[in-house]
Structures are given as C-alpha cells and as structure tokens.
Amino acid sequence: MTPVHATFGEVAAERRIASVPLSHVSVELGHLYMEDFEAGPDRLREQFRRVAPWLATVRSLWRERVPGGRARVSTCFLVDDYFSRFSTPAELVPMILEAAAEHDLTIDYLARESACAQSEGVELARLVEDRLVDDPPPDTDGSRPPVKETGWLCNGSRSPRTAPVQAMGKARPWEPPAQNAKRGHSIFVDVELWDEKGPRRTWSCPFLAAVWQLLRLGLLRSDGRVPLPPVALDGGWPRNWDELPAVVRLDPQAAPFSAYTTLSVLSPRFLPVELAVRTILSQVAVDDEVLRQVAGRSEGEGVRLEEELVDRISYVFV
C-alpha cells in the first residue's frame, strides 16, 4: 500500500501580504476641482504660495523627529476627474507643475480621484466599503439598518423618527442626536457614502477622500497586493484622463508615495469634507497584518506612531 502524506496548515498562515515602501510623511500640496481650473493659473499660484512655508516647516520638524535627521518626505497632488471631466492632462498638468515651480515646490506624485473609486481593475472604494464596521450607539435596538444597506454612516445615534400619534396615544417627545464618544457635548456627524441611480453607484467626495488617505498611508491591499503602485509616465501627457495612470511618479528620485503619516494643506472649504473623512476612517477595520507591518517598520526606525488611524492624519487649512 502506498502511504499518503497530508499537510495541514492555517489559511491565514498561507497569506502573503505585500509590503509597501514608506516615507515618514506624505504632504498633499493641493486638490484641484473644476472651479479651480476655470479660475486660471492665478488660483493655483495662490494655493502654492500659501503651501510653500508649511512644506518647509514639515521638512524641518521631521528632520528633528527622525534619528539622524534623514526624513523621507514626499509630496502629492490630487485632480478631480471623477465628478467632472475638465480639460486634459496634456493641458492641465504642465500648468500645475509650472505654478508649483514658481514657488520652489516639487510635486512628486500626481493622482486621479477617479482611481479612488476604480482603476486598472481594482475597485478601491469597494475594498474600503467591505471593511466598514458599524459603530452602534449604546442601547441600540436594531431598528437602524446597517451602513452597507443605507449608504449612510454616523458617529452616534440619530434623532428618532416621529410618526403620527394614534387616537389616545402618547406622543413621543423629540430627542436630539448624540455622539458616541462625546466630550461634554455632542458633535454629531452623518455622512452619505454613496447614492445609486439605477445600476450606477456614485461614491461621495468624503468617501473617496477616505480611500485617498488610506492609499497614502499604505494601508490598502487587494488580494494581498499593493493596489495602484505609482508608475512613471511613458511618453508625453495624454489627452484623455483614462489614459493617465492612477498615480504618476513625477520625480524618479522622490521618497515613497505612501507614508507613516499624512499632512494635507487645503482650502478651508474642505474642512467639512475632512471631518466626514475622519468619521469614516474611525469605522474602517484595516487588515491586522498590514498594521503589524507598518508598526514593526516604524519601531525599527525609532518613529512612534499613534494607535488610532485618524491620529496619523493632519491638516493645515489656509
């Protein structure tokens, strides 16, 4: 009789989670929408004029923080090609780079916002949706549908609906919404993640911005692989946004695109969006193995990272 040899192993042990190169901080130098483009180069010049001092400050602070002063700082710029298609890469990108250069700024990476929804066969938005974990308020009775059914996510308990009172019935008094982890008083946030018209789903700006932050933090994986790694452009700028890679490496000598922490220098008009982003990210469960990878590497470099994901993200509103 021929002996049978069987090998048993945990599925988790067979997983291969790719690692990603990491800078110490990824600095977003701007975020371009159609109205910014329509305002012309002067709008971009003003943005970069305000950004320049902050980038210099970030570089200085990280040199002091990192042992040996060898801080890895990368810069990026995001163009909205999801909610509106305007101009072309061939016309727009040179204008952005020239405006930045006037203030001695170098953009290392250029990204398309539509890639945060789907690009190159990878549905990043769906990956993040699958990792949403409901944060039910105390004494939840199950009457609120889960976020994956409604497309709405909040940080506490909504005001209960009021319904017509039957004859001789007792009216239910109005109750205010309440934040789960409030400090004294509530700051209640209710965020729409997507809407659907027929078969088409449109992701909201805050949800795509949350995906963008996770991408910059190097915390997303698709079947264990790093999604949408930056690539150098082969040839000139295309005349169609779909022909432009999701994340373009502009400087071949740049520090890695993803980083332990992120800083975004934005107009104050983005403040409500980023509040929604932080609300979303507080309910995203990142893969444990990916978190261990990042933690192990940061500890090896003597860089202490905050436990909470949202505390690794910072902003300057100018």
Rank of each mutant, 00 (worst) to 15 (best):
R70L: 06
V231F: 05
P94K: 01
C116P: 05
A246G: 10
K148H: 15
Y260F: 12
S19W: 09
E307G: 09
G40F: 02
T261D: 03
V316W: 03
V27R: 02
V189P: 05
V191S: 10
H31F: 10
P177K: 15
E301I: 13
V286A: 00
V27L: 02
Y315F: 14
E243F: 03
A254S: 10
S204Y: 10
E35I: 13
A171T: 13
D287V: 05
V318C: 03
P199G: 07
R50N: 13
E91W: 08
A254N: 15
T57K: 13
H31V: 13
P173V: 15
L305Q: 02
S26I: 07
E192T: 15
R144T: 12
L219P: 03
P252L: 06
A232H: 09
V286P: 00
R16V: 15
D195T: 15
T279P: 04
S119V: 07
A259N: 00
A171R: 12
E299Y: 08
R201M: 09
N240F: 08
S87G: 05
P229N: 13
W241K: 00
R49F: 01
T279Q: 11
A101F: 00
A210Y: 13
E192M: 14
P245Q: 12
L105T: 01
V93H: 02
W237Q: 01
Q166A: 13
N180Q: 09
E120Q: 07
D108V: 00
Q166D: 11
E308I: 06
G236R: 00
P67S: 01
S314C: 04
S298R: 07
V294C: 04
L105P: 01
V286E: 03
E306H: 15
V273C: 08
F317T: 11
D36W: 14
A71F: 02
Q179N: 09
G156P: 05
E274N: 14
F188R: 06
P89S: 03
V211P: 09
K182P: 04
A295H: 12
P21N: 05
E129F: 06
A71V: 00
R144L: 13
R126I: 13
G40S: 09
L105F: 02
S114K: 06
L153F: 05
E129W: 08
P272G: 04
Y260L: 07
F188S: 06
P67N: 04
L220N: 09
F207W: 08
E129L: 13
L263I: 01
P176M: 14
T106C: 05
V226Q: 03
E289W: 10
K182A: 12
D190Y: 07
D311W: 11
I107V: 08
D130C: 07
R45M: 11
T279S: 10
A115D: 01
M34R: 12
G300C: 11
E113V: 05
A117F: 03
H103G: 03
R63H: 06
G235I: 02
R126G: 10
E120W: 01
D81T: 01
P89G: 01
Y260T: 08
A285E: 12
R239I: 07
C116M: 15
R278T: 09
L124R: 03
G296A: 14
L32Y: 05
